[in-house]
Design a binder for these strands. Structure first.
Lengths: 178, 178
DNA sequence: GTCTATAAGCAGATAGAC
DNA sequence: GTCTATCTGCTTATAGAC
């Protein structure tokens, strides 16, 4: 069995980008085909469950990238303040300096929301725990740490929405400095 | 010319709800027809510009409701702290206790974003100014007031996204107490 | 594993009767 | 002002050749 012409990770990256630009409903198979450079039938060869499976695979893939770029720095061994800065840098890269929408936002809408809510909930939970643990390590008590962690995630999501709506990414950059 | 069977405000309310539940792309004409109780052709009689005009009309209608329920209390005459609480109550109603997504989020996505960005930007600007003016009146300097106002809008949008993604509206309620 | 061709159905939108 | 019926094109998805 010969290797695929395009590595699956690359395909998933491009699918993710297309979903992030258009949302679940707006990302038609034709667009996904164009974004990946694969014909429609090839996409269905990769993802036999169709668009829904493509989205699920993207969710897993993006979750993995998030773990590497954001969660891992938080779970590292340096000083808390330093790890927090590493997380900010990771978020900045992950969201392309605020240009990319978050899948947690897009996949929460409409029918997609019903399909993927458990995964979205899990992703938020993991992020909140990682950040909360770090804040506890930095000296906050359990309740404060959880609240602050949740606030940070809320601010991040809000900044992405406002940045997209205004076309002005300065909000995203400012919020990243919390 | 006899009156319409359903008042236009009622039609707009129902269209708004359908758009908020499904997003711009997810809200098909068939769904909008069902949501309003009007046949497709009747919808096109009201909105000759089709779906795009329906969305634009919803944007204007919802903007008006937001002015009444949220901006007006901020611009009132009582004490700043009291007006702030009135705003919170208005937001709680406007977003149905966190159950409704914000049009600023949904209409920022994909093609809809390109169509409506100016209106979205304007709406955020008006909210930020009203809130900033109140904060200045409460004693903050210009820069702080603007920053805090923006932070509040960011937190509100983020809370709505996180509430929708997790299905847990407690985040929305907590953030409303800032 | 990729492609072209095509099926079946839904999308947005319109015509014309009442 | 509302409806049924319809048009056209795009949607998801599949069949089958290479």
């Amino acid at each position: 069995m010969p290797a695929a012409i395009v590595p699956k990770d690359e395909v998933l990256d491009r699918l993710a980008q297309a979903f992030r630009e258009n949302g679940y409903d707006g990302a038609s198979i034709a667009r996904l085909s164009e974004a990946t450079g694969l014909g429609k039938a090839s996409l269905y060869h990769y993802f036999k469950g169709g668009k829904q499976e493509m989205a699920a695979a993207v969710l897993g893939h993006v979750g993995g990238r998030f773990s590497n770029m954001v969660i891992a720095p938080l779970r590292g061994t340096g000083q808390p303040a330093r790890r927090l800065r590493a997380m900010s840098a990771g978020l900045n890269d992950f969201y392309s300096q605020g240009r990319s929408s978050c899948i947690l936002d897009l996949f929460g809408i409409g029918q997609a929301g019903e399909l993927f809510r458990p995964q979205l909930k899990g992703a938020i939970h993991r992020f909140k725990n990682a950040l909360g643990d770090l804040l506890r390590e930095a000296g906050l008590d359990q309740t404060d740490a959880e609240t602050k962690a949740e606030d940070a995630i809320v601010a991040l999501q809000g900044a992405l929405v406002v940045s997209r709506a205004t076309g002005d990414r300065s909000v995203f950059h400012r919020v990243l400095e919390e």
